[in-house]
């Protein structure tokens, strides 16, 4: 009991503190691949601090939702992060919710953010908001199909159980069916976190913005909260991938060795995701928004094939 408390506390502190750093890693990788030096790894922290000190400016057309939305968006991502096992084999909030709850909390964040983007009555907010919800309709089926693959393999939708079964199975966890599901998840993870080829996270060109478009009217501490939520969401998605498809290294007890292994493994996994996204950002061009169904339904198909393989070719 005390052991799982230690592991949970480590995860909570680690994810909340290191989320901006990973954002910095992605930006740095992208810059290096473009022969730029790039900003410091600590730049995301400095940005957050800068916004935190500034005043908020809001549209005179806005309703109270504009003020409330950042708090709800942050809460949805924070609680979801606590449901994913990243250090211990069970998540900090063991028994509170399974992977469907994590997906539901992401939907809560998206619902509130997309709604608040409409509040100022700017065309850019509407643009970002409508694109976000439209792309989500392509992402969500693939996400569920992919995670259903892992859930069926472990016979549970509980992420702690999935990670536990997966770790205990060792190499036999990585069946062809699971690898197909993992591939499907990897594709939609890129869309869910807003990276190339779905979205350019650094864009400030109005016509290509999605997430940035929804944040355009936010400023000061509210912008800081929303950006921090986006940074934390990257950790969450990477952690979800790790728990469901690559559950190596997670600690079963709070012994120092296991904790060190777990921290190392998780940092490697999450940093790997950040580096991979940086490489994608630097090497891929943004796809036309009308071409996205091609990419994202491919993910759905991979997920469906993964499930079909699981049903018809049980190993």
């Amino acid at each position: 009991m005390a052991g799982s408390l230690v592991l949970g506390a480590l995860q909570v502190a680690g994810t909340l503190l290191l989320a901006p750093l990973l954002f910095g890693v992605t930006k740095r990788v992208k810059a290096r691949l473009q022969y730029r030096r790039g900003p410091s790894l600590l730049q995301p922290y400095r940005d957050l601090a800068k916004w935190w000190r500034k005043e908020s400016v809001e549209s005179d057309a806005a309703s109270p939702l504009t003020a409330a939305a950042p708090a709800i968006v942050l809460a949805s991502v924070v609680v979801a992060t606590f449901l994913v096992p990243m250090v211990g084999i069970v998540p900090p909030l063991d028994g509170w919710g399974d992977l469907l709850v994590v997906i539901g909390l992401l939907a809560l964040g998206r619902f509130v953010l997309a709604l608040s983007a409409l509040d100022a009555g700017s065309a850019f907010g509407g643009m970002g908001s409508s694109r976000e919800v439209a792309i989500a309709t392509l992402v969500e089926p693939a996400l569920l199909l992919a995670l259903a693959g892992a859930a069926l393999a472990a016979r549970s939708t509980d992420l702690g159980t999935i990670a536990g079964v997966g770790q205990a199975a060792g190499l036999s966890w990585y069946t062809p069916a699971l690898l197909l599901s993992a591939a499907a998840f990897a594709i939609v993870a890129v869309a869910e976190t807003g990276h190339e080829p779905v979205e350019n996270p650094d864009t400030h060109l109005e016509l290509t913005m999605i997430h940035e478009g929804m944040l355009l009217e936010a400023s000061g501490p509210r912008l800081a909260i929303l950006m921090y939520a986006a940074e934390l969401k990257l950790v969450l998605v990477a952690g979800l991938f790790g728990a469901a498809f690559l559950p190596v290294g997670l600690a079963r007890t709070a012994s120092p060795v296991e904790i060190l292994v777990a921290l190392g493994a998780t940092l490697a996994k999450v940093a790997g995701a950040a580096v991979a996204l940086g490489i994608l950002d630097a090497t891929l061009a943004k796809m036309r928004i009308l071409a996205l169904p091609g990419l994202l339904t491919t993910a759905s198909l991979l997920g469906a094939v993964g499930l079909a393989v699981r049903l018809w070719l049980p190993s």
């Binding site: 549209s59 709800i72 942050l74 065309a123």
Partner: peptide, 22 residues
């Protein structure tokens, strides 16, 4: 969590209301 974010980051801050930039 939402309450803490609200109390610390949103409620006590000064807010300027201006027309939307178009």
């Amino acid at each position: 969590v939402a309450g803490i974010a609200w109390l610390v980051g949103i409620r006590p801050r000064t807010v300027r209301r201006v027309p939307t930039w178009t």
